[in-house]
Design a protein around this nucleic acid. Sequence first.
DNA 1: AATGATAATGGAAATCGTTTCCATTAACAC
DNA 2: GTGTTAATGGAAACGATTTCCATTATCATT
Lengths: 136, 136
Amino acid sequence: MTVGREAVLDVIAQSDEHLSAEDIYMKIHPFYPAVGLTSIYRTLDILVSIGLVRKLDFGHGRAKYELAEDSNGKGHHHHLVCRGCGRIIDYNDFIDEELALLKKTEESLSRKYNFRIDNHLIQFYGFCDTCKKPER
Amino acid sequence: MTVGREAVLDVIAQSDEHLSAEDIYMKIHPFYPAVGLTSIYRTLDILVSIGLVRKLDFGHGRAKYELAEDSNGKGHHHHLVCRGCGRIIDYNDFIDEELALLKKTEESLSRKYNFRIDNHLIQFYGFCDTCKKPER
DNA sequence: AATGATAATGGAAATCGTTTCCATTAACAC
DNA sequence: GTGTTAATGGAAACGATTTCCATTATCATT
Ligand SMILES: [Mn+2]
Ligand SMILES: [Mn+2]
Ligand SMILES: [Zn+2]
Ligand SMILES: [Zn+2]
């Protein structure tokens, strides 16, 4: 665990947003100008592979990262994604009911398709408070 | 509706797979060598925007397209994505139960976050029949 | 301290799906 | 035909991520 890696993990742990590799680079750079973007990517891969960090794709062309649920204090959650401004809302309302059904669904799908499921992705798309008023 | 656009829609309608822009290009090219990849992308954008086609991202670095559910004969469905070979399985088992809960969840989330939800994305990730035996 | 083996690093260049530019062509009304 | 507009394809640009590679840090062994 080097200083650069520590810094990446710190930034993710401190932030309650979903950060891109470049976001992280920008936050680290003032304090550790020697840490390059390539290392950020490398470190993120490692953190994801050991399960400390989750990589997310909201369809904005760049991957975002958040602390894995074991460590993030808000537990497992899903996302609301605004197609207007790109805002992302974490929610865990109904998460219990959702997870119960998901579990059941996963079991049956696993059996039927002989598929080992180890993850799921659930996102709702639409327009947030601010963006829905105008047109469309 | 030009010949190139017709061809793109045809290919998507005929196929029961999830096709990338390049997949579509390759299928069309032998019959219409004059249709370029740029036009495929342009046409796909249009088809998506008028709701005939759905654009999907399974995290394989390129977008995939399928016929929108109104026209695809299999109705609304979700996806199982194999992280080994990239295979994608359409399923609609449990879709009724899932949709009922989703509807309820959407309503409450909409109210709570003042968010207009008009779409959702549900994918299960794991390893398919073929890929799960080896290691990991 | 010198040596050597190994892991980590950062910057430049490459990659690759997608978009943008732009000059050419098709379609259509008058 | 003339002019106006929409559609087209190929080349070039774009941008996030990866790959390459020469340099540097780490650390155990002499
Ligand atoms: Mn989140
Ligand atoms: Mn499908
Ligand atoms: Zn918004
Ligand atoms: Zn597979």
